[in-house]
């Protein structure tokens, strides 16, 4: 068998290449084309060179949205990863309790993202919402549509409620994969619960936690539907993240040229972060026992 025969297998993935070409590469090419032109309508366009890139790079609203995005993703990771590990440690290991916990944990992940936003709008409404009216009833003024701080708190609560279960499920799978012999040896040595966590459970979960961290960072960095439905980017621009700002430019203002330049810069940020995370993941995989 020579290597040419082996390479015939590449034809099997040809359909995927065709689909990716139509769904990703051709749109990407179009975005690149749009980014250097002023588009007025079908067939009406003017070449402007790199003007839109210069404009977008100097846009203070983009800088603010980027900073918000990093802050949001940082907070998401700081809360969801430790909380997810904690819940996974507390979940029953076997029996009906384990099955019930897994089903309950999976529920928020099954709800469509825009529905999550709607649920939380109703839940936190200051007049009739269960949470909103309860907080107001305690004498604390609460209205996430008026207060930026409360909008951020509500957004974080929604995000944590929606996505911590993913971390829980991954951490739980990692914990269940640790052989019982480790715990028996630790028991014989009289190790404390903290020592078991620090020297057995945490190192053994390194692989799954890396995946959880990467998934949560990427998802939170691309977030759109939930904050768009819940706050619409407000009050003011205080919850306007990169994707929301991009849609405002492209659809709200119909500035297709600047929006295309913005999309490419956003794409380059995501590409760089994905590559860095991929490298981290590869190295974590090699070091994992």
């Amino acid at each position: 068998m020579n290597k040419w025969e082996d390479n015939k297998a590449w034809f099997l993935v040809l359909p995927v290449f065709v689909i990716v070409a139509f769904s990703a590469i051709i749109p990407l090419m179009t975005v690149v084309n749009y980014s250097i032109q002023d588009i007025f309508g079908p067939g009406e366009r003017v070449f402007v060179g790199l003007e839109w890139f210069k404009e977008v790079l100097g846009d203070p609203r983009l800088h603010e949205a980027l900073m918000r995005q990093f802050l949001f993703s940082g907070l998401v990771l700081l809360i969801e990863i430790p909380l997810g590990i904690g819940i996974a440690l507390l979940m029953p290991k076997k029996g009906w309790g384990a099955s019930l916990s897994l089903v309950l944990m999976a529920l928020p992940l099954l709800i469509p993202w825009n529905v999550i936003g709607t649920i939380w709008i109703v839940f936190t409404r200051p007049d009739i919402g269960l949470l909103g009216s309860f907080i107001n009833g305690m004498g604390i003024p609460f209205d996430h549509t008026a207060s930026p701080t409360q909008a951020w708190i509500t957004l974080m609560l929604m995000e944590v409620w929606h996505w911590t279960p993913l971390v829980v499920l991954l951490a739980y799978a990692g914990l269940r994969a640790i052989p019982e012999a480790y715990f028996q040896a630790a028991k014989i040595d009289g190790a404390s619960a903290w020592a078991v966590f620090k020297y057995i459970q945490l190192p053994k979960m390194r692989g799954v936690l890396t995946i959880a961290l990467l998934l949560r960072f990427m998802d939170s960095f691309l977030i759109y539907a939930e904050p768009f439905v819940l706050t619409g980017g407000g009050p003011g621009n205080t919850t306007t993240f990169l994707s929301i700002y991009l849609v405002k430019i492209a659809v709200g203002q119909f500035d297709l040229g600047p929006a295309a330049a913005f999309s490419l810069i956003y794409f380059l940020i995501i590409l760089l972060l994905s590559w860095l995370f991929y490298q981290v993941l590869q190295n974590a995989g090699k070091g994992d026992a």
């Binding site: 051709i26 090419m29 690149v32 250097i36 032109q37 588009i39």
Partner: peptide
């Protein structure tokens, strides 16, 4: 036409 090709982007790709 909808892809709005230009000479510089064609050379780039």
């Amino acid at each position: 036409e909808w892809m709005a090709w230009t000479l510089p982007t064609a050379i780039f790709f």
